[in-house]
Design a binder for these strands. Structure first.
Lengths: 346, 346
DNA sequence: TTGTACGCGTTATCAG
DNA sequence: CTGATAACGCGTACAA
């Protein structure tokens, strides 16, 4: 609990750098007042050059860092902090998203408070609450659950919010999405065009927004082609490669097995390929179509086609949207939704 | 500059949630003093239960979030913030590192300020300075350059520092490393044991600590086996897959070409494999050994062996080291260096 | 150009 | 168990 107890023990000072130098220390060292230091550090406007120099020297000598937290408690001051909550950085898709976001933010001198929810709504809630408490200027969230109470404007103290990759039913907020429906539709259409009639589907749990959208696109393509949807070929609920692998193994055992498989995301595609490889399925016996590109997808031992999109650009766009809302002249611009396109990659 | 100008315009309040509710607002709403609110929020110790309830109700009604920044400016208070600076989250290795770090930190209620240096020393310096200004309780850094001035204790205000993945000449700080030398040594030895005598080396720029170490292990294995090192087979300076690909293409054209190739990291391995695939090199004509495992490495069209290690555990260890130093009873424990083992994975 | 007074939101301290 | 007071580091407003 109380870890730092070094205030008044033994020798009065110089025992250890217990307290960081403040603007007062710098002022004393430079022989000026704290205000002059403050002004000098802002850019030296209205301060005599020689004093600026003295201040900078003192700063260097003392290793002074302006306390951004103390600074930000003053009214009207921003923290220059944006909270970014994704589900899992280990997934290259979200890593790209995070990188894209930071890329834009860093350009504006904004730092990133990062958190992984692990697809856990409770954990996401905790992070959101904590980030708001840390006075973030904005929030970029890949929402995990279906509930949106913890993201309501009042709950987050009016902090600008951008939903990334997933939308939330009944929550009016800026949103950046991949055009999942169109992507899945196009991908499935391609399979149909190639003559496949029994197409398996392997995907994540249906509580995830993108999962529902992608299955929807898959469905629509069937409908528009007049093809029936065989429930025996639909496997949802896999949220890691190994679960997908097992699902695919089962699909191979179905009577009148599929000739093609549509995989809903990069994790599932990896599992599907593993299963096919494990069973030594001939490459001309199974056609694989996967949402999300992933590294080395072009070197897989199957005629794999991926539905590609730019996760990094999604991150950039999300960041731009927060910043724009932050710098907006009008009080409360209406929420916007942006959809990023997909392309088929052979 | 001055973006928020809504203090005294037109209607006195309720125009817009201009100022977030403070502890005073909560106190007023709950009919108690700010101190009681503060205590109630800490856990309700020494506060009448009914008042705690009233406070919690007011908090919920007002959507109050305790201002962690204001809180942290009080002496002896921690921010519960750790700065994590890696080179690039898009590299799965660093993504895992970041994830491992957050895993441990989140367990202690600590949040993560994240930044990518992009292997740019200047950018790293900026991030370090900024993070210290934001009063981080600790710093985990994958250092980019060879200079260490910006990480000296005085420069970072005595903030506990852990170097991850790379060490810095002349900087005494806690460090977590992969045992690069031993890993590269073992990997190379394996190739030698298999009868290879002309082994190519493809790696990143030599200014990177791990690059030097891995080449060192490669060298030692040659020396101990009495094998000469042919400079024509050593290609360093590749920091992305495509550069590595081109390097490998060149290596294939060398007179008396190599029969095996040692790739220094995951990015380079990907490039090497692409080159071999592109040239349709028979799988029995080139043996590939790569440092770092990567997803789907086992599905590559070559008898690839990787020198594996646990980047996530490296992140966890780094986080544990910062926290331990933070919670240490002794004033200034001597710096420790931990090396994590590698294993050969076929 | 420079300095003083005050307040930002929070909590340790001490009095009641 | 509860509240008043002061102080944390900084910047605005105002005074010199």
């Amino acid at each position: 609990m109380d870890a730092l107890d070094n205030a008044d023990t033994a020798s009065p000072k110089s025992v250890q750098r217990s307290t960081a130098p403040t603007i007062h220390d710098v002022a004393a060292a430079a022989g000026v007042s704290p205000m002059t230091v403050s002004r000098a550090l802002r850019g030296g406007k209205n301060v005599r050059p020689e004093k600026v120099l003295a201040v900078l020297e003192a700063v260097a000598a003392l290793g002074y860092h302006r306390n951004e937290n103390a600074r930000s408690i003053r009214p009207g001051q921003r923290t220059g902090l944006i909270g970014v909550i994704i589900t899992n950085v280990a997934n290259p898709y979200y890593a790209q998203l995070q990188l894209g976001a930071e890329e834009v933010l860093a350009g504006g001198g904004i730092r990133m408070l990062a958190g992984n929810s692990g697809e856990d709504a409770e954990r996401e809630k905790t992070l959101v609450h904590d980030f708001v408490g840390r006075q973030v200027d904005g929030l970029i969230v890949v929402p995990s659950g279906t509930g949106s109470e913890h993201l309501e404007t009042e709950q987050i103290g009016g902090v600008p919010l951008v939903l990334a990759s997933r939308q939330l039913e009944g929550l009016a907020a800026d949103t950046v999405l991949i055009d999942d429906v169109a992507g899945a539709y196009e991908g499935t259409r391609r399979l149909v065009a190639e003559g496949h009639e029994r197409i398996a589907y392997v995907g994540n749990i249906m509580s995830i927004f993108t999962s529902r959208r992608r299955l929807d696109g898959f469905r629509r393509a069937h409908t528009s082609a007049g093809l029936p949807l065989d429930p025996a070929l639909i496997r949802v609920g896999q949220n890691d490669p190994d679960a997908a692998r097992r699902a695919m193994l089962e699909l191979l055992e179905v009577p009148d097995p599929p000739t093609a498989v549509f995989s809903e995301n990069n994790r599932n595609t990896v599992g599907v390929i593993r299963a096919l490889s494990e069973r030594r399925v001939p490459t001309d016996r199974m056609r694989v179509m996967g949402f999300d590109d992933f590294e080395l997808s072009d070197m897989m031992p199957f005629p794999l086609t991926v539905i590609d999109h730019d996760a990094r650009e999604l991150g950039r766009t999300a960041a731009r949207m927060v910043v724009e809302r932050l710098d907006s002249d009008v009080p409360d611009p209406p929420p916007r939704t942006v959809q990023l396109p997909t392309t088929l990659l052979d």
